[in-house]
Design a protein around this nucleic acid. Sequence first.
DNA 1: GTGGGGCGTTTTGCCATCGTAACGAGAATT
DNA 2: AATTCTCGTTACGATGGCAAAACGCCCCAC
Lengths: 243, 243
Amino acid sequence: MVTSCFAERLAKHVPLSDAEKAALARLEENPRKVKRGAMIQRVNDTVTELFVLREGRVMSFVILPDGSRQILRVYFPGDFIGSASTIYSKAPESLIALTDVVVCPFDKHALRRLLEEYPRVAALLFLLSNAERVAMTDRLASLGRTSAKARVASFLLDMFDRLRVTDDGVIDSFDLKLTQEEIGDSIGLTSVHVNRMIRQMEQEGLISRSNGRITLHQMARLEEIGHYTNRHKDMDLDWLPVG
Amino acid sequence: MVTSCFAERLAKHVPLSDAEKAALARLEENPRKVKRGAMIQRVNDTVTELFVLREGRVMSFVILPDGSRQILRVYFPGDFIGSASTIYSKAPESLIALTDVVVCPFDKHALRRLLEEYPRVAALLFLLSNAERVAMTDRLASLGRTSAKARVASFLLDMFDRLRVTDDGVIDSFDLKLTQEEIGDSIGLTSVHVNRMIRQMEQEGLISRSNGRITLHQMARLEEIGHYTNRHKDMDLDWLPVG
DNA sequence: GTGGGGCGTTTTGCCATCGTAACGAGAATT
DNA sequence: AATTCTCGTTACGATGGCAAAACGCCCCAC
């Protein structure tokens, strides 16, 4: 059986047939290595490609006319990236490698064939796309209606929970691989203020840090501060057609 | 031919076969009238239903523990609502009718059959879900990185452009049917500050108002102020399978 | 081993933007 | 007619942005 990190990810939600696994693996036939810091996709590029992220971390972002940056999403291995190019001919967001990375690009016509031949995979992609939407609305509420401290708390918890889905090594500490400026650009704060909040949370014993790793100490208290809800627990995909 | 406002909406993107139209119309077999202000869905309700909005306006929102509200999305006729319940068993957001409304609820198992039998519709739903995601990221950048004035400007333009997709009567003025408090709750501001910005924009001749209707005068200038991009122009669905 | 450059973090003082609280007026709803 | 909504407007103040500089650390060249 060919392995595919995307198939593995999907299989965490729904058991896949061998044919489905093989079809998904075919999307990952052309792995491409990308160096840390390199641009994978640029805003307004004409794109027909999507990606599965196999190794490393990637972020999507936009730069506003005044030069400020909004980071839209941080991606982890097994994530499906750049789905906006299924509907827009020009990329609405840029993609950059946060670490050395392996991405598997495939053309949207390959996706089309997949959707035609494997309706259940199509449904699954639809569902996961809805999960992404909910993740966005959660962050929207965070940016729109919560304090700086709450935003940092919920951001850390979100990263933590997402890492834990794929990486079993994650217990209560993790390596964010983001600078404080990047955290700020994710949650609508300046790096200065992110620093203020992180140090404050550290002093309060909510988190601690050592050489880049962040440890979360009072998970429940952090969830309260950040008004955070772990969405991963409540997923229900059992109603999907059987493979 | 049975008419369905959802099919009509989809047909604006891709020509649909009669079979597809009929299948979509079947989702709308049980129209339900809802009074203005009534709750259609409540956060944490166990839900298995989705909706097509046939008439009126609906908003989705969450209430944070401190009582503040974040409005996540305003929906217009032809919109597909509540897709989060395809993946979460408990509703992550509340739905409320902004005007008297006709919604067409259907169970997610009906959606499942549709996805199984009409792969192209499944693909289409996937694409539109991605468009929603992009709309969310646009607002995320707005909340995270732009001023109050920019947020109001881009919000007005967004509502305007979305109304124009379905309502041909919309030229340069429209009836928002939102209070200033609701606008604020959409873009992360207080009603007081929304009021400041709106009056300021009115004084500058960017917009004008009379009994609830808003008229946009300097569209280009507004787009500049709000860092707004009209996403509707750039859509490309031609690569989808033929019906 | 040492000096330097780059990057990220830490820190400070100042101040703009935006929120809070409060109240009045007019319109709409009962 | 009474009540509730919505909008308008004010004074005051807190949150978080801005600018600038210093600090620590890692890596590299010499």
